[in-house]
Nucleic acid binder design. Structure first.
Lengths: 127, 127
DNA sequence: GTCGATAGATGCAGTATGCACTTAGGCGCA
DNA sequence: TGCGCCTAAGTGCATACTGCATCTATCGAC
């Protein structure tokens, strides 16, 4: 968290945070996570993107990994969540809850998100 | 070029859907929306990105716009939600709710946000 | 030895993004 | 009258991200 990679971006975070969430309760490897995402109801993410995202999460300290060769077949890179990953994950939830309340309010008719006269022209200094 | 923008991507949609949500109940212009996002608790999006995203939403038929010169000061491009925008918005909610339940399940083990924890550790086939 | 499933990774082209900057109208004020 | 500031929208550029296709490699089944 010293330099350039310290501040995660906001937009490609659906995938990142899903991965972190899965890793909260169990360690897993990329191929497996890729499938869990689909099972969990998220639309399929490209597996290449999943692998690259995991590597990037490792670079930024959110997860750590090691090669697991204990099973037969290709080696698996096993990931686990770090402390930093947990913190980021819980912080993200707050953002997401705000976001979700925006969407929900919008869909459930017309309760104003911000008190403001809809048709008058006093847009001047509402804030 | 005609069909390239037809399928909305999943990742950069936090901004897009927030904008659509705000426009669900009111018409608004970019500068205003940019500020509402911050007020609503979303981290600041770059205003240039907001403007470009709005133009793109218009290109894909989610919103429509016209120049409002009724007030003094610089002209405002007023946006309103189209039918297609409403449909997309409601579809997005479903995806998001799946997503949110993933995160909440993950977090429930150390920071229960919603009293919904089944608290059984039989995570194997839960998702 | 070949096929298929598993497991991970990379090259490339297209797209999105953040930052800095520009354009432009209107206001207040010395 | 000029200057600074706020509002409002947009653009250029370098970088980052994404999806698609492709590649390597291990193993079991046939």
């Amino acid at each position: 968290m010293t330099d350039s990679a310290s501040r995660p971006r906001l937009h490609g975070e659906l995938l990142s945070t899903s991965l972190l969430a899965f890793l909260k309760n169990w360690n897993a490897y990329g191929y497996q996570l890729s499938q869990r995402l689909a099972e969990a109801g998220m639309p399929d993410f490209d597996s290449g993107t999943v692998y690259r995202t995991l590597r990037q999460l490792e670079k930024t300290g959110m997860v750590s990994s090691f090669w697991d060769t204990s099973e037969s077949g290709p080696a698996r890179r096993m990931y686990s969540l770090t402390k930093a990953g947990e913190l980021f994950l819980s912080g993200w939830i707050e953002t997401l809850q705000n976001y979700q309340s925006i969407l929900q309010t919008a869909l459930s008719s017309f309760a104003p998100l911000v008190p403001r006269a809809p048709e008058t022209k006093d847009v001047d200094s509402a804030l």
